[in-house]
Design a protein around this nucleic acid. Sequence first.
DNA 1: TTGTATGCGTTATCAC
DNA 2: GTGATAACGCATACAA
Lengths: 341, 341
Amino acid sequence: MITIKDIAKKAGVSITTVSQVLNQKEIGIKKETKERILRIAEELDYKPNYLARGLITKKTNTLGLIIPDITNPFFPQVVRAIEDTGNHRNYNIILCNTDNNQKKEKLYLEMLQKKYVDGIILTSSTRTTEEHGLLLEKLKLPLVLLDRAAASPFDFPSVYTCGYQGVMLGVNYLLKQGHRKIAYLSGPETSLVGKERLEGYMAALQNVGITVNPQLIYYGDYKAETGEKGITELLEKDRNFTAVMAANDLMAVGAMRSIKNRQLKVPEDISVLGFDNIQISRLIDPALTTIHQPSYEMGKMATDMLIRLIEGKKLEKRQVILKPELLIRESVAERKSQPSP
Amino acid sequence: MITIKDIAKKAGVSITTVSQVLNQKEIGIKKETKERILRIAEELDYKPNYLARGLITKKTNTLGLIIPDITNPFFPQVVRAIEDTGNHRNYNIILCNTDNNQKKEKLYLEMLQKKYVDGIILTSSTRTTEEHGLLLEKLKLPLVLLDRAAASPFDFPSVYTCGYQGVMLGVNYLLKQGHRKIAYLSGPETSLVGKERLEGYMAALQNVGITVNPQLIYYGDYKAETGEKGITELLEKDRNFTAVMAANDLMAVGAMRSIKNRQLKVPEDISVLGFDNIQISRLIDPALTTIHQPSYEMGKMATDMLIRLIEGKKLEKRQVILKPELLIRESVAERKSQPSP
DNA sequence: TTGTATGCGTTATCAC
DNA sequence: GTGATAACGCATACAA
């Protein structure tokens, strides 16, 4: 590989001069020598060694990105936004999948630190416990939490969409369409996100004086399969609900399959409402009415925040909470009569 | 940050000894000092600086991964496989999206080179022209082509699934189900992959003595929207086809939507067959019969190959061509009669 | 069994 | 205007 030394030799100048020219820090360098150096660098096809540079400047122009699983259709959009935004500002990203495994997350965090990334965007596997928070603080690295709120004793910068509001939006819409018995396909009881969305469901019902019926709640794991399974179980317990809201689109899609398999129709017999607005949701039939999460914007904002932190600037807001939106498509109908028994 | 110097000082030894212990190269170091060093490193929470190390060893344990767009549902699986495989072997990956933009691809290649990644996996935007091939050769970096064959004058290692065989498999199946007029939603005429698959379609028909009817071919861009548009146009030209094969699942899904919108039924009126087996395909209704591309395996093999190259080992095969498989689900039916006019 | 010295490629400091 | 030289943190040949 060509180094500045090679250029210096060929140009008959010192490496200092070469370095200055190449970094546009020409406090005072003859136009002539400058052009000669530039020309020679071009000729030799010189490529600066970012490792060496980083060793001194303490900057790698690389961001760490830790998510549960890129295979989860919610993430590609987010990741794409982060990569785009980073790329515009001259940052590359290292992608890490944790599978919601705490140990993997910890290993990745350490690795990224060793590689001297300039900052990290983290969709954490676990709720930020005392221990976990301390671990993150110990990193001494700019950090932005994505799709997760920072747990109380800590206040890491974070950007996420309000799940409580989102589900409430959805349930309110179902109520407005005349539905009274509304089932809910929840995420795991243990997950923060799952809990928050569940609370939105309960609050929306209670707001209009409906008592929450635990028989109408099923706890899944955000995958299509548990959506199917959930509907099956719910229908066995109580066939009287006319609508179901899912904590994410994938479960909603599973629910639709399961409903259809029983010769029931969506939305005529049972209305289905999702959450996330992943790509699939508009491609299935009937197209899924859902709560849109601005995932590209989330990724973009998280990256912008992170870069501000890296540059030592202050953040206007440490917690950015984005608003979900109701996206009406075809999977919810007005309740006109009692469902068939 | 803690360095080996700090540890050396605290342990009362030289940095050489510390370095040796930390790198398990203990040609002969007293158990006692070794344990002391290890303990102190632990206490101080020492994290080796990979930049400094890489500067000497010329290894970063980082791989570059260049794809068109992670948002394309074909890629998350592949990327996941690459990340998994890399991670097992202690490599991280830098993700880059080119949007099939040659200029972006070139910029990423240069950047990765400057960052001294150990190797690159590339799903190139362009067919490997003379110029492009030379550019890749000039990198002097281990490189594996993914989902693309190496164009003739060059023979970069590559792994991909045979599209010709895949489409042929699909069309043969349709023929076996009694279909004779089979439409085809192709990729762009300009793309190598698109061309290869199209040739599979034509060959399959010609094999049984059917003349290819250009009126039954539509050139799209692999997106769901062009699948819809394609079907619309095809139906306007000639309503007599009983089956349609798409060059990818997304277009097939679009086709299904379009067919249903015309009050026709899949598969009773028109059978639909896809290609890729992306996640969506099994979630829609009817579930899409498709040609399965082993995407996880592709990613895994590409990574294994790349790491072999990095380690200076010989490759058993430079071109790995994986076999596609027919995956029968619900979107293809036997042709019993002429379709409704 | 351990330490000294050198170099990796760059930027930064300061002298000329 | 330009050039020595130190420093970044680490690995390693060689010396002790």
